[in-house]
């Protein structure tokens, strides 16, 4: 029994060590001001990626139509289409890694992926931790309402009831800018949509990409306001300090403007959901990194 006890004690001790190391590490990364690369694992430069013959890109696997897995098990979507082009132009194999919204920054910080292409909205806070390349898509707020009483201007909502999802940009935006709009708040998207369908509110507002897609597959509802509030950029991100890859991506995005690559990307992946309407397209697509 003595030897058993020793082994078990060793495991207990080493588990403790890992725990303390982990806690310690979290503090470190929390205090990282982003000006150096000390907290980040070794990223791969463009040359190293080419040498290894493989580029690893983190994408969503359940955000149709931007990044998802189709019924045959193949990755599809606007982000994936771009990822395939990146691999092709680097001349390497593409390895896609499924990521979640909450772990995108960490995947880059630990260099477990080379690039994140997962509907990643550029924010100041994130820019402290990762390096964003030029945008390839943009997103603003949209307002969807029943055909019987289409809301075409945000001002029309004054005195009316607007459905929002808690914690979204829409909630903050209307609270700050349209205090006369009555907000009806829900925790989940599907609750909010049910409320709209049941007529519990006059309209529903969230990211325009989301409401546009939903209105397409729900006849009787129209997105009357397609862009509202400030427009956010969606861009690829690389590990902080990976300058060669960042520069390569910026050059790539600029060069792809010549062939209107992202318009083609839209036609291939988003048109089925958002339609071919040029106005829709211009609301979403960013070409050459120019918003």
């Amino acid at each position: 029994m003595k030897i058993f006890k020793k082994i078990a004690a060793f495991f207990a001790a080493s588990a403790l060590a890992v725990t303390f190391a982990g806690c310690n590490n979290q503090q470190e990364s929390g205090g990282n001001d982003g000006s150096d690369n000390s907290g980040n694992a070794a990223y791969k430069t463009v040359d190293q990626i080419k040498e290894s013959g493989e580029v690893t890109i983190g994408v969503f696997s359940d955000k149709n139509p931007f990044g998802y897995v189709d019924n045959t098990g193949k990755y599809q979507g606007y982000d994936v289409y771009f990822a395939e082009r990146i691999a092709q132009d680097l001349g390497v194999e593409l390895k896609l890694v499924p990521v979640e919204a909450a772990s995108r920054v960490e995947f880059l910080e630990t260099a477990k992926v080379d690039i994140i292409l997962a509907n990643f909205t550029v924010t100041d806070e994130r820019a402290q931790k990762v390096d964003f390349a030029l945008p390839y898509m943009k997103v603003a707020l949209g307002v969807v309402s029943p055909d019987s009483a289409i809301i075409k201007e945000a001002e029309e909502l004054n005195g009316k009831t607007l459905i929002v999802v808690k914690g979204t940009t829409a909630e903050t935006f209307f609270t700050e800018n349209y205090p006369d709009v009555k907000l009806q708040k829900y925790d989940e998207y599907n609750e909010a949509y049910s409320a709209l369908q049941d007529g519990r509110g006059d309209a529903f507002s969230t990211d325009n990409t989301e409401v546009l897609a939903w209105a397409k597959s729900n006849p009787g509802f129209t997105v009357g306001v397609e862009t509202l509030g400030s427009t956010d950029a969606i861009a690829p991100a690389v590990t902080k300090g990976n300058e060669t890859l960042l520069k390569w991506l910026n050059d790539e995005i600029a060069a792809l403007a010549d062939e209107q690559f992202f318009h083609k990307d839209y036609d291939e992946t988003l048109a089925a959901v958002y339609g071919d309407d040029e106005a829709y397209k211009e609301n979403l697509v960013v070409e050459g990194g120019k918003m």
Partner: peptide, 26 residues
């Protein structure tokens, strides 16, 4: 040991081991 394991949510543990170990040791 037991209390630390119980107090920290498994989600945090996954982050600590998957990302933290890489950050700390490479």
């Amino acid at each position: 040991y037991l209390e630390i394991v119980r107090i920290m949510p498994q989600l945090v543990w996954l982050f600590v081991v998957f990302f933290g170990v890489t950050k700390l040791t490479g």
